[in-house]
Design a protein around this nucleic acid. Sequence first.
DNA 1: AATGAATGAGAATTCATTCAT
DNA 2: AATGAATGAATTCTCATTCAT
Lengths: 216, 216, 216, 216
Amino acid sequence: MRETGCIHNNRPGVMSTQPRQRRHRDESQRHLVDATISAIYKHGFHEATAQRIAEEAGLSAGNIHYHFGSKEELFAAAMRQLMSDISDTLVYELGKADTPLARAHAIIHANLSEPLYTHRNCFVWLQFWSETARSEELARLERINAQRFHRNLLDALSKLLDRPDAEKIVQELVAMVDGLWIRKAQHNEAVTPEAARAIVFAYLERRLGPAAGQGS
Amino acid sequence: MRETGCIHNNRPGVMSTQPRQRRHRDESQRHLVDATISAIYKHGFHEATAQRIAEEAGLSAGNIHYHFGSKEELFAAAMRQLMSDISDTLVYELGKADTPLARAHAIIHANLSEPLYTHRNCFVWLQFWSETARSEELARLERINAQRFHRNLLDALSKLLDRPDAEKIVQELVAMVDGLWIRKAQHNEAVTPEAARAIVFAYLERRLGPAAGQGS
Amino acid sequence: MRETGCIHNNRPGVMSTQPRQRRHRDESQRHLVDATISAIYKHGFHEATAQRIAEEAGLSAGNIHYHFGSKEELFAAAMRQLMSDISDTLVYELGKADTPLARAHAIIHANLSEPLYTHRNCFVWLQFWSETARSEELARLERINAQRFHRNLLDALSKLLDRPDAEKIVQELVAMVDGLWIRKAQHNEAVTPEAARAIVFAYLERRLGPAAGQGS
Amino acid sequence: MRETGCIHNNRPGVMSTQPRQRRHRDESQRHLVDATISAIYKHGFHEATAQRIAEEAGLSAGNIHYHFGSKEELFAAAMRQLMSDISDTLVYELGKADTPLARAHAIIHANLSEPLYTHRNCFVWLQFWSETARSEELARLERINAQRFHRNLLDALSKLLDRPDAEKIVQELVAMVDGLWIRKAQHNEAVTPEAARAIVFAYLERRLGPAAGQGS
DNA sequence: AATGAATGAGAATTCATTCAT
DNA sequence: AATGAATGAATTCTCATTCAT
């Protein structure tokens, strides 16, 4: 069926001497992915048409299919980009944390501070959330992301509490953070990153207080 | 332009003496609204086409415009329907509660029990959430619903705590409930109504514990 | 996926009192089928775009998908139409023939006289021939048509000759008729119906001569 | 406009002293022509896209325009290639024939034996047949080929019969051979080269028998 | 009140072609 | 000589909407 020119972006690890065209290709692909996120933010998922995305990227619509094979693939690439951003931020924040509690704090902090906890990011993520019903690939990515968040928190908290308690707290925290992302997506001005963090941290302290107190 | 057909459903208070056609009309409209929710649940918001909705309702596509003027209006009617369901359930649950704490419990219980806390309901609601960006009317309805939830909880809790504390707890609760709705929408089997309520009630007790304990 | 309005033309046998809309539908469908054949004749198979076909039919392009679900289905319907024309002509000609030889003559005559043996018909048929490679459905129809032609001729000739001889003659006749259709499709003026029939009849007489002579 | 690259393949008579690049060029062109035929055989005329042809040739799509100026020109080159194959085979077979009858046999034999009478060849040729409607150049080539076949046969047979008879027989033979090519293209397994030749030779003998007998 | 044939704007996608490298 | 990124026109198809019946 489809046999377009370039589809896979099999970029090698380091290639300083890569030819000019290769650089062009990677740049265009990155532009398209960024433009996709912008277009979703500006217009919502379904108004983010190929035309608009391409325009936003300063390219013509044909490139979407040249580089990604289909619009669907481009959306998946955009979601992966967001996940990669989340991951980078998380790794950075975790790098500064050296105790289990600090790690739990870091994870929550990363998810409720800029650059992740912005209207743009929460809004676009909500759009993807609602599209996981249609796209198995998007659903798969969402699951990966959710599991990573869950596992990271659990790793940290299970050093402070016994497993069932930790599990329970994690569920509460995840629910709160998800809820705060939705709220940000919907009513940006209603909740600042500081307020969001204050809510969750206050909760966490109260929640850990007695339990953690016993642990110390 | 032309303004044939019925568009506003100005149903009169008294229903018994309405003519035959009026009954037909109301019935078709209800069918269409129900069919809209079903179609969104089956196919997602954007795959819920006029054709499919009409088919689900056992009518033809033309009726949507005859009865609602536009697909957009029908979606708004469907969202109002969901809100009305929520309201009915809430009123019923609140009717059984006679203390502030019981009222807070009732509100949360209503939002995290059947018939509201079902996959269908949470899923459809998530779809609407993501569409508020496109439609000012849907956004308005969402705001009304959010405010009602917030106000109800605040009314109850402000009888138990001072205002700033109550405000804070309400925000935490709202975030948790929203997060649990999303989770239900996304991974139905991952959270039962009982588990969801357990999470929030445990949190609420712990949160109120010292404060409420002092109050009692 | 697809769930367009009307797709099957389940017209009942006789329905004199059919509603106006039903008549409209059938008429539009017939127009579209005719327009398809015209467009193929005018522009060739692949230049017969939905746009052009609809224009030829005096309708808008959306109707193709409303009535037939896809362009591919419309093409199949057009091929069935051609086959039905062939069948009608054949039945009519066979109705006048009462001996096996007359039946054989009738079959060939039908295939090499107007209205079947026209530039338009041969040309369009050649277009379909070359498309059977792409479309399993068109291939199926072509097979049905080829088999019908083969069987009819064989039925007639096997009354005059023993089976192997009849089989052989039929193959020769089929090859000649197909070849004459191609020639007509390609160089209309190079061969008149009369000339085509003369070629095949002369061949048939010479071929049957001795064998049939023995039979008489 | 611009007229870069090589478009005409004005290959000189002497080849031995051509520079390296010239050899590269000729090789690429031959690859492309072969790839075109392969692609048509694999996918049909209209699915034989520039992309696919280039891929089949182990080159990139740009080369088609560099070497041939347009896809249309490449198709014409491919058709010329097929005609050249036919011509080569015919010349070879005619070289072994020394009587008029032998020459007639040789012509038919060449057209109904490998390597010409293969599924691939007949199929691709049918594809070109159906495209002559669109392309004046392809039509011109087809005419040349048809006339050559006709003339060759007529030259041979007019030595055995008077002109009108010869003319008639040639038309019958051409029709049969064309018909047998179509049959091969459509239902490869339905007719072997031997069977095809048997049909036409049996016909020719019977046809020439009395006439040739009278003539001798 | 309801139907369903028809429309037309806009969606994704395909593909020959161009051209800088 | 060859590449492959980019283009833009054309194509099929979708769908809310209109409107005669």
